[in-house]
Amino acid sequence: MEKVPMTIAGHEALKEELQRRQAEERPKIIDAIAEARAHGDLSENAEYHAAKEQQSLNEGRINELESYIARADVIDPAKMSGDTVKFSAKVLVVDEETEEEKTYIIVGDVEADIKQNKISLSSPIARALINKKVGDSVEVAAPGGKRDFEILKISYG
């Protein structure tokens, strides 16, 4: 079984979502199915079919979460250190063309969220940054074309 790298915060978030889906969502969906069944003929009952679809999606996500949690390789960013970029690093870079500074946090695939500047370990930017040091320039093949970044700062925790 392939391990899934994630931070402590990412692992906790998955456990919270699993708990919520099992303890709150599942009972609500079961109630909705029971209520829809009470309306009679199931073949033309849109509420019933919608509730069953919602149940299928919820159970699928529960299975996915249980798999991620079982395969988790939890890494504590506070215990990481060094002068090179690796998993859980917070990296400040500057775009060499636009001079725009951006901070990225390198996390596992399941906790990546670009709105929070958390990028997946398997993303083109993260792959380019791994094992580099402050002052290094990296070239990233982005969807909008090639971009060059210089690493300004690396921190952990």
Rank of each mutant, 00 (worst) to 15 (best):
K132Q: 12
R71G: 01
N58V: 10
I33T: 03
A32K: 05
A89F: 03
I75D: 00
D136M: 06
I130P: 01
D95I: 10
K153E: 15
A36S: 09
G60V: 05
D136A: 10
F149Q: 01
E100L: 09
Q116F: 10
R20I: 08
V134I: 13
K153I: 01
E101H: 05
P143Q: 15
G108R: 00
Q54G: 08
H49E: 15
K118T: 06
G60H: 11
E44P: 01
G10H: 00
I8A: 02
H11Q: 14
K118N: 08
E66W: 05
I75T: 05
L92Y: 02
P77G: 12
I105D: 00
G108C: 05
K3W: 04
M6G: 00
V91Q: 00
S155C: 12
L14C: 06
I8N: 03
P5Y: 02
E2S: 08
V85P: 01
A46W: 09
L92D: 05
L14W: 01
E100A: 14
R71Y: 04
F149V: 02
Q54A: 13
S137P: 03
A13N: 07
S123Q: 07
K90E: 11
L42S: 14
A36E: 04
T103D: 05
Q54L: 12
A51W: 01
H49N: 13
K102C: 08
E66C: 07
A142F: 10
V4C: 03
R61Q: 07
I125T: 15
S137L: 09
E139M: 12
I62H: 02
N63W: 07
L65R: 01
S81G: 14
F87Q: 03
I106D: 00
S122Q: 15
V93A: 03
G145M: 06
E44W: 10
L152G: 08
A38N: 12
V138F: 07
I33E: 01
A32C: 07
M80D: 06
V91E: 02
A142D: 13
D31A: 15
E47G: 06
V140K: 02
H39L: 14
E96F: 03
E111I: 00
A51G: 11
I106H: 00
K146R: 14
D73V: 04
M80E: 14
I119S: 00
R147Y: 09
E2L: 11
A23Y: 09
D83G: 15
V94K: 06
A70C: 05
V138A: 06
K15M: 13
Y104D: 01
E139S: 12
K79H: 15
E59T: 03
T98R: 06
E53W: 11
G40F: 08
H49C: 09
A70E: 14
S81Y: 08
F149W: 02
T103K: 06
